Amino acid sequence: MAEQLQTIRTLVRKAKKLYLKKFHEEAKVFAYAPGRVNLIGEHTDYNGGFVMPMALPLYTVWAGKRYDGTFAEIFTNAAGVEEPTVRFGIYNLDRSGPAWSNYVKGVLSCYFGKLNAFKAVIVSTVPVGGGLSSSAALSVSTYMFLDELNGGRSELTKIEKALACKKAENIFAGAPCGIMDPFIALLGEAESVLLIDCRSLTFEPITLADPKIVVLITNCNVRHDLAGGEYDERQKECFKAAELMGKEFLRDADYMDFRELLENRFKLKAPTSLLKRARHVISEIKRTFDGARLLKNSKFEQFGRLMYESHESLRDDFEVSCPELDQLVELTRGVEGVFGSRMTGGGFGGCTVTLMYADAVDKLIKRIQKGYDGVPTFYVCKPSNGTKRLCECARVA
Rank of each mutant, 00 (worst) to 15 (best):
P205C: 00
F266H: 09
A278H: 11
M256N: 06
K240H: 04
P211Q: 11
S200L: 07
V215R: 01
L274Q: 15
E237S: 11
E230L: 05
G246M: 10
N219E: 05
E260I: 01
L216T: 01
K212S: 13
A209H: 08
D225V: 06
E260D: 13
S200W: 01
F203A: 14
D210H: 11
R279V: 03
R251H: 02
G229W: 05
N219V: 04
T202V: 07
R259D: 13
L208N: 07
G228C: 04
F239V: 10
K236P: 00
E263W: 05
E263T: 05
T272K: 14
K276Y: 10
D232L: 02
D225A: 14
L262S: 14
I213L: 13
A278G: 11
N221P: 06
L274G: 08
P271I: 08
F249K: 14
E204V: 08
Y231D: 06
T202N: 12
M245Y: 07
I206A: 07
L262C: 09
K240P: 00
Y231E: 08
H280P: 12
K236E: 07
R234G: 03
A242D: 02
K269E: 09
D232I: 00
F258H: 08
E233K: 15
E263S: 11
T272V: 10
I213G: 14
E243F: 02
L201N: 00
G229D: 14
R251W: 04
M256P: 00
F266Q: 09
I206G: 08
D225Y: 08
A278L: 10
E248Y: 07
Y255R: 06
Q235R: 15
L274D: 06
R259V: 10
F239P: 02
I217F: 04
E237W: 13
K212L: 05
H280N: 13
R251P: 01
M256L: 04
F203M: 14
R259C: 05
R279T: 07
L268A: 13
N221Y: 05
G228W: 05
Q235M: 03
L201H: 04
A278S: 12
D232F: 01
K247L: 00
R251Q: 02
E237Q: 15
I206E: 13
C238G: 15
C238A: 15
G228H: 12
I206H: 08
K269R: 10
F239D: 06
T202F: 07
P205H: 01
L208M: 15
R277N: 09
P211D: 14
E263H: 09
T272H: 06
L261D: 05
D232H: 11
F266P: 00
F249P: 00
L261V: 05
E248C: 03
G228P: 03
L250F: 07
L244I: 03
L268N: 13
E243W: 02
